[in-house]
Write a protein that binds this DNA or RNA. Structure first.
Lengths: 220, 220
DNA sequence: ATTTCCAGAGAACAGTTGTTAACTGCATGG
DNA sequence: CCATGCAGTTAACAACTGTTCTCTGGAAAT
C-alpha cells in the first residue's frame, strides 16, 4: 500500500481519472444512458479503444462514479452524526454541511440525483446500496441518542431512511437553487431546516400516542 | 368540443398516442435523453419523418408525457384530500391510493421518477411545475384542517411539499417493490404508513415548542 | 366535381456509434 | 541487458442517428 506505484500504474490511474472527470462533466447535460464511449474518450483526448483498458462499459464507469461520489462521504457523515449540541444547532449544522458539499461537488450531487432512478440498472443498484449503508449508519447513531429509548429497531431504521432521503432532497434543492442565485439558496436552507425541525418534533413525540401496530412483527 | 372530430384528425391523434405509448414502453429500460426518434417510430411502425408531424423533438414528446402522467392526477389528489375520517384511516387510504396508482400505471411513475432530475431540461421543468401545483393543492387542503390553526402560510407550504415528496418517494418504493414480490410491497406500504404517521405527529405538535425563527421574514 | 391541404412515405445526406483486430512504444521483471 | 507485458494507437466494420427534400393518397373545403 505504502509502496509508491510505478510510472506505469500511475499513468494508467491518471487516464482513468481523466475519463471519470470528463464523463462527470459531460453528464451535466444528459443522462448516463445516453453518454457515449467515444464522447468520453474524445473529451479526454485519447483513442476510443483506450476506454476498454479501464472499464468494460459505460455502465461500469457509472458504478465507479457512484463509488467516487458516495464512497468518500461515509466518514463525513459519521463525524457529522457524532457532533454534540442542541437539537436546533445540529439541524443547522447538518444543513450547512449539505450546502457546503453541494457547492464543492455539484456535479457529483447532480449525477447521484439523476441516476438514482436512472436508466442504467447497475448504477441504480450501486446508489441504492450506498444509500442503504448511509441509512444503517444513521440508524446506529440514532440508537445511541437518549431520545430513541423505547424505539423498535424497525422504527429507528424508518426514521434513518427518512433522514437520508431528506438529505438527498435537500441536496437537490441546493443544486436547483445554485443556478438561481444566492437568495434562493438561502430559501432552500431555511426550508430544509424547517423540514428537519418538523421531523424532529415528530420524533420526540413518537411514543406519546399509542402505536399498537399489529403488522410490525418484531417481538425480539 | 362535442363536435366529433373528422376522420383526418382522429387518425392523427391515434398515431400521436401510439408514439407516446411506444416511447413510454421504450423508456422502461433507458432515460429520455438516450431515446431515439427513429427508435420510437420504428416501434410504432411508421416512417421516421412522420414524427415531426406530432412533435418538434424528443424533448417535446417528453413534455407531453409529463402532461399525460401527471395532468390527470390532479382530480384524483383533490378527491383524496377531501375524504373525511380518522388521521390513521386517511394515511392508510392515501398509501393504498398510491399503491393502486403505481400498480395501474407503473410506466408513468417510472418515467416521472427517472426524469424528475433527468438530463432533459424542459421535461425536468414540466415535472417541477406540476409538482408545485400539487403542493399548492395540498397546502390549500391543509389550510382548511383545524389542526393547521395558527400555522403560517410558509409553514403550510413547507409541509405540503414534504407530503408531495413523500408521495413520490412512496411511489418509487412501490415501483421497486413491484419487481421483488408482494411481501416486499407489503413492507413498503407499512414503511410509508409509519413515515406519514411520524410526520403527522410532528404536525400535531408543531406549535407546542417555540419557533422564534428570525429568518422567516413573512410579516404580511 | 374539383381543388386544396396535410399525414405519412421514401430516399438520401453526413455524422455518429460500439467493437474488433493488429500494431507500437515503453516501463517493468528476470 | 533483454524479453515480456500492457497502456494506448490506428484503421476499418456495419449499424445507427437526426434532418432535409420530394412525393403521394385521400380527407376536407369549395
Amino acid at each position: 500500500m505504502s509502496h509508491t506505484l510505478g510510472i506505469r500504474q500511475a499513468q494508467k490511474q491518471k487516464t482513468r481519472q481523466a475519463l471519470l472527470d470528463a464523463a462527470l462533466e459531460l453528464l451535466e447535460g444528459q443522462s448516463l444512458s445516453s453518454l457515449g464511449l467515444r464522447e468520453v474518450t474524445r473529451a479526454v483526448g485519447v483513442a476510443p479503444t483506450a476506454f476498454y483498458r479501464h472499464f468494460r462499459s459505460i455502465a461500469d464507469l457509472g458504478v465507479a462514479l457512484v463509488e467516487e461520489a458516495l464512497g468518500s462521504l461515509h466518514p463525513t457523515i459519521r463525524t457529522a452524526l457524532s457532533t454534540t449540541g442542541d437539537t436546533e444547532e445540529r439541524i443547522v449544522r447538518a444543513v450547512e454541511l449539505i450546502a457546503g458539499h453541494v457547492e464543492r461537488h455539484p456535479a457529483h450531487v447532480r449525477f447521484i440525483a439523476r441516476e438514482r432512478y436512472g436508466g442504467v440498472r447497475p448504477v441504480r443498484e450501486a446508489i441504492g446500496g450506498q444509500l442503504a449503508r448511509f441509512a444503517e449508519e444513521v440508524a446506529e447513531a440514532l440508537a445511541e441518542d437518549p431520545v430513541s429509548e423505547g424505539w423498535s429497531r424497525d422504527d429507528l431504521l424508518m426514521l434513518a431512511q427518512l433522514y437520508v432521503d431528506q438529505m438527498i432532497m435537500t441536496a437537490c434543492g441546493f443544486l436547483e437553487a445554485q443556478e438561481a442565485g444566492p437568495e434562493e439558496q438561502e430559501r432552500s436552507a431555511r426550508l430544509a431546516i424547517r423540514r428537519l425541525r418538523l421531523i424532529g418534533v415528530g420524533r420526540r413525540h413518537w411514543l406519546d400516542d399509542g402505536h399498537d401496530d399489529a403488522g410490525s412483527g418484531t417481538p425480539g
